[in-house]
Write a protein that binds this DNA or RNA. Structure first.
Lengths: 190, 190, 190, 190
DNA sequence: TATGAATGAGAATTCATTCAT
DNA sequence: TATGAATGAATTCTCATTCAT
């Protein structure tokens, strides 16, 4: 009997392995051969799992999308205060900064290479998911969550491209203070 | 006598014209033929002015670098208050947002494709220049200027990739308030 | 399972086929397309077997080298006299004159296009092999074998470039007489 | 008044300068730019003097042809003996061996790249001239002169390609002895 | 006459994709 | 299902040649 489950699982492993490859070299500069070598399979095998190189990028992006949704939903403890939640979230981002930097770069690759027959506005949904998840999890007003999201993307971009010019910890403390300040000042009466 | 051509000036014009091309499609996905067509010259001419495709990217990035330095230095009126300066600066960014979005994407391309024999740490210098120019011009402490720089990069990234998800004017107002709040609160006694 | 191909054998066949091509047109004037057409394969296939055009020349020269060594070693009958050996050798050269003319021209191509990271002094080894094989096989003193080698190269060069100006048979008879004369006169007492 | 003589003289100088270039790198591997640089003129100027790259090779070969004829005719002293003439000739070749090596390589280039609308059988005439000049000057029977010619070409080829494997002086002494031997033995009465 | 900027056909090489095994 | 040899269109780059100045 063919192992259907394994097939999907295998595909997911394959996608994971070339996530970093695409992020660091860029989609166009990674060859199918490279991917195959990285994954330890032949190019022929790759084409059993994916329809094309393009398809790899698309499926990878969608997989990331789904996976991150699932992860984020289970992150927060219901009993925490806003400030605690924010702190936790920033620690979470800090710990996975490598991943988020790559995700940011992958998103650009997807932005550039998506075909218009991709179902719907995948990118918009992707961003919206993150923005809303942040608002919900940290319980921030959407505008503030957006602000935080935008800033964190800027920070990921910055530390990847100019690694020596800012201290990520200093910047995270700064944004924490700022958001905290906004929360407390806006919740204060008059 | 041969045709009189200002070699450097012509080269700069050529570089300007493929700035957008590289930003939108990405360096690897733009062909020399495309560039030549866009510029209205032959591929041979391109190689008369540039040593390689790589060389086009490098020279373009350096040109941008130099040009932006010169522009930024002449931007500010000495008599303005901090707040006024910040406002002016944000208007400046807003008006040139298209350009800054492209610059951000070009920077990633340069980051990916630079060769190690490029003189020094061009990228670091590039970022440092912007960070310091902002600190000086708006007269912010460096940490706050860095914060602003990082946020604005995040914003440029966001509006390019997810154009429908946030209002750039709302976000600019928000960051203005935040910085203003920081300035005033930190300058207040006690 | 992929198509079973004896990689090395196939490569050798390919090399054989472009031997004449390189000899007659010269390395630089043969295009990869021409080679591919001549061999009945695609350009892509060529690059599956060889690292570059340069590499084809290098591997071809080395293959020739090895093959000729093996052939020459089995040529001579132990029981023959010096004169008989010489005669046989000249017949051998005469019969394969087309090949030797091409080999001479190929050697020039290799001389011109070899890269310095080629292992050792391939050309010198190549010549030394021939000189020594001749001395041994015909049992001539090295100096006389060198003389014969040099003359025969000259003859191959001549008949290829100026085919109507000398009769190869006359010249072969002449050199036979000369060598014979040298052998007998030097072996005579007094 | 236009200087017609200078034009031709200039052209001859130009041809001289790229003689070595063509010999060492081969016709196809020398660029017009290289030639122009070597000659210290622009590519445009080159095309005032020559119709094409091909034309440079053709005119160069013809110039060499004519020049060598003129030189050789004035070389010999009428009063010398055969043996003396042979010796002188070999010294002449020895002194100009660099030139003859290049000439041999140029001849191959011409052989490969001549067009069929080149007037007559230039190559054949070229070889015949040398063969006859040698027969006349040294006063050898044509067959022996041919033999000498062929051998010397072989020697030039050998010392250029395999410089460490034979001593040119040893070989020249050997051929001298051989020819001498042939002369004296054939002139002796039965 | 002399220049060298401009041209574009054609070169070597790469690489996504196919398919016989 | 898995392989990797084979394909050939497309890419970057070169270079002989032209021509406006």
């Amino acid at each position: 009997m063919p192992k259907i489950v394994d097939h999907d699982q295998h595909r997911e492993e394959l996608l994971n392995s070339c996530f970093t490859l695409f992020a660091t070299k860029g989609f166009a500069d990674v060859t199918i051969r490279e991917i195959a070598d990285e994954l330890g399979v032949s190019t022929g095998t790759l084409y059993h799992y994916f329809h094309s190189k393009q398809g790899i990028l698309e499926q990878m992006f969608q997989m990331v999308n789904v996976r991150d949704v699932n992860q984020a939903l289970t992150m927060m403890d219901e009993s925490l205060s806003k400030i605690e939640r924010l702190k936790r979230f920033l620690v979470f981002v800090r710990e996975r900064r490598e991943y988020f930097q790559n995700l940011l770069l992958i998103t650009i690759e997807y932005f550039r290479h998506r075909t218009m027959d991709d179902a719907g506005d995948v990118l918009q949904d992707f961003a919206d998911f993150y923005r809303r998840a942040m608002a919900e999890n940290i319980q921030l007003p959407q505008e503030l969550a957006d602000f935080l999201f935008i800033y964190l993307n800027g920070l990921m971009y910055h530390v990847r491209l100019f690694p020596r010019s800012v201290e990520i910890d200093d910047q995270l403390r700064l944004i924490e203070n700022m958001i905290e300040c906004m929360i407390t000042s806006s919740s204060k009466p008059g």
